[in-house]
């Protein structure tokens, strides 16, 4: 399996969760939206963690480039996190209209980020990592969303 395949599948999984949470908000179901949004946030944060802790450092080391593409990807993760926080605060206030407006914004922010990764960064990772890609995928699989004991 290639990094492109592995992480692209994760993006699609996040999308799926996003759509379900957004649909609950559209239906006016605050409780279900909160539940689904938590789930979406968890898978998204776990995905970011896999990239930031495993993939990006290896890529930076092998390509000798710490100021390039991975720096921008980390910045964009931060932007997504900030928008997620806004959405959480909207849900805390029971403001589903605000949530939906932020969701529209988040979707584009997230997808233009995904396009960059899927179109360029992941194929490039597969290229520079070559045979070691498999071990990086294993390391990413081992990343857990539980805090270290």
């Amino acid at each position: 399996m290639a990094i492109l395949e592995f992480l692209t599948a994760e993006h699609r999984g996040c999308d799926e969760n996003f759509a379900i949470a957004e649909e609950a908000a559209q239906a006016g179901d605050l409780a279900r939206c909160q539940h689904e949004f938590q789930r979406f946030q968890r898978v998204t944060e776990l995905h970011f963690k896999k990239e930031e802790q495993e993939l990006f450092p290896v890529f930076e080391q092998v390509s000798g480039n710490t100021l390039g593409p991975t720096r921008v990807m980390r910045l964009e993760h931060q932007q997504v996190r900030e928008t997620l926080a806004e959405m959480n605060s909207a849900l805390d206030h029971g403001d589903l209209a605000e949530f939906l407006g932020q969701a529209e914004t988040l979707l584009i922010l997230m997808q233009q980020h995904n396009i960059k990764e899927e179109q360029m960064l992941y194929p490039m990772c597969d290229r520079v990592l070559g045979a070691t890609a498999g071990s990086v995928i294993e390391a990413m699989r081992a990343v857990s969303d539980r805090p270290p004991a």
Binding site: P69, L121, M124, V128
Partner: peptide, 12 residues
Amino acid sequence: MTPTAGLSLEQA
């Protein structure tokens, strides 16, 4: 030239 040369994901 490294394979990543020319790649820029800088903002718009």
